[in-house]
C-alpha cells in the first residue's frame, strides 16, 4: 500500500470551483487574514499537492515558500480565471538563479 496524500486548492471562488467536483480540499481566500488559518490547516493534514492560484499566491507569498525545503507537499502556482500573469515563471527563474548563480535559461525567452 502506497502512502496516500490529499490534494488541496487555494484560491478565489470562481477559479477553484471546478476542483470541488474532483473532491479536492478547497480553501477560498478573500483576504490575507485567512492566510494563517489556511497555512495551519495545510500543515496539519497530509497534503501531497497544493495548488495555489496566482491571486492567492500574491496575497499569501509565504505559503509558496513555506514548504520549499520539504519533500511534500509540492506547491504549484496555477493561473486563475483571468489567465496567467507569469508568477510561476518568475518563481522558477528565481530558483534557477539561486541554484546556478546566474540567469541561464530565461533571458532569451523572457
Amino acid at each position: 500500500m502506497m502512502p496516500m496524500y490529499k490534494m488541496a486548492v487555494v484560491g478565489e471562488e470562481e477559479a477553484v470551483l471546478g476542483f470541488r467536483s474532483l473532491g479536492a480540499d478547497i480553501f477560498t481566500l478573500s483576504g490575507p487574514q485567512e492566510g494563517e488559518k489556511i497555512m495551519a490547516a495545510l500543515k496539519k493534514s497530509r497534503y501531497g499537492v497544493v495548488f495555489l492560484t496566482e491571486r492567492a499566491a500574491k496575497i499569501l507569498p509565504e505559503l509558496v515558500e513555506a514548504f520549499e525545503d520539504q519533500p511534500l507537499p509540492a506547491v504549484a502556482i496555477i493561473p486563475g480565471i483571468e489567465g496567467s500573469i507569469g508568477l510561476a515563471r518568475t518563481r522558477m527563474k528565481k530558483i534557477v538563479e539561486k541554484a546556478v548563480g546566474a540567469d541561464i535559461l530565461f533571458q532569451e525567452r523572457g
Binding site: M2, M7, F19, V49
Partner: peptide
C-alpha cells in the same frame, strides 16, 4: 451538484533518488 461530489482526489506519493536527493513522484488517483 459540486458539493455532493463523491469523488475523492488523492495523491499517491513515492520517492525517487536523483544524485542522493530524494524527490517525490506523484500520481493522481481519483
Amino acid at each position: 451538484a459540486l458539493l455532493v461530489s463523491r469523488a475523492q482526489s488523492k495523491i499517491e506519493a513515492t520517492s525517487r533518488n536523483i544524485m542522493s536527493v530524494k524527490v517525490p513522484e506523484l500520481t493522481w488517483v481519483i
